Simulated scan of single mutants.
Amino acid sequence: MPRIFTAVVPPDEAVEHLDSFLEPRRAAAPFRWTRPEHLHLTLAFMPEAADHRVDAYVDRLADVLDGLAPADLSLAGAVVFPNVAEGRVLATGVTGGVDALATASVRARNAAVACGIEVDGQRFRPHVTVARTGGRPTELTSWVRLLETYEGPPWSLASVQVIASHLGEGPGRSPRYETLAEIVL
């Protein structure tokens, strides 16, 4: 059964802006940096989804997202998981239409459950992962200070994608992402 997630994928301009900001800084840390084409904002994560349930999920998702309030978003600031002293994930935050994103997340998760797909129960916190520390807790104060200075260009929430993640099938044993559906809002 594939791992799937529902996500907002920032437009090329936003990805290129963030990538340009991070590029000269990547050599300063031995993190596993997220490839630009993998940058996304997860609304719902489903660790196992039977193939026969995914089509029903996509249909239900399109229905429940119909009429979602328009939102302008920007990537900005810093987010660290689980905390700055023992960071494992470094991310940029999202500003702007956070309420619309939260609504979309609840609807995406509820649609999955209604289709018999188990959803990861973590609290929704809008972010775009830019790097992982490789599993070891790392003090990330300097990286938080750096990302706190970042503010990307605004863009409109225009679509949501349902993506399959094939672990270890991408370059350097990274995941390979396959877009299963795009729902235009």
Rank of each mutant, 00 (worst) to 15 (best):
M1T: 10
M1G: 15
I4F: 00
V9P: 15
P10L: 06
P11R: 02
H17T: 08
D19C: 05
S20K: 14
F21D: 09
L22Y: 03
E23A: 13
E23H: 00
R25A: 04
R26V: 02
R26G: 09
A28T: 05
P30Y: 05
P30W: 07
W33R: 03
R35C: 07
R35P: 12
P36T: 08
P36S: 09
E37H: 12
E37T: 06
L39E: 11
H40C: 15
L41F: 02
L41A: 01
T42K: 06
A44C: 14
A44D: 13
F45S: 11
F45E: 12
F45A: 15
P47L: 10
D51K: 13
H52K: 12
R53F: 09
V58T: 11
D59F: 10
D59G: 10
R60Q: 11
R60S: 14
R60M: 12
V64R: 12
L68S: 13
A71P: 14
S74V: 15
S74E: 14
A76P: 13
G77Q: 06
V79Q: 15
V79W: 10
V79T: 13
V79C: 10
F81C: 05
P82R: 03
N83H: 01
V84G: 08
V84T: 08
A85V: 07
G87D: 02
G87E: 04
V89H: 01
T92E: 01
V94I: 08
T95G: 11
T95H: 13
G96F: 06
V98K: 04
V98A: 09
D99A: 08
D99V: 04
A100E: 14
T103K: 12
R109Q: 07
N110F: 02
A111T: 02
A112T: 01
A114Q: 03
A114I: 01
G121Q: 11
G121E: 15
F124M: 00
P126F: 03
H127W: 02
V128Y: 04
P137H: 00
T138F: 08
E139V: 00
L140V: 02
W143R: 04
V144C: 05
V144P: 03
V144T: 04
R145E: 07
R145K: 01
L146E: 08
L147M: 00
E151C: 11
P153N: 08
P153Y: 04
P154M: 10
P154R: 09
L157H: 12
A158L: 14
V160H: 12
Q161G: 14
I163K: 12
A164Y: 09
A164H: 13
S165F: 08
H166A: 15
G168F: 00
E169R: 14
E169S: 11
G170R: 08
R173W: 04
R173P: 15
S174C: 10
R176Q: 10
Y177L: 01
T179G: 12
L180P: 05
L180K: 05
A181T: 00
V184K: 05
L185T: 00
L185I: 01
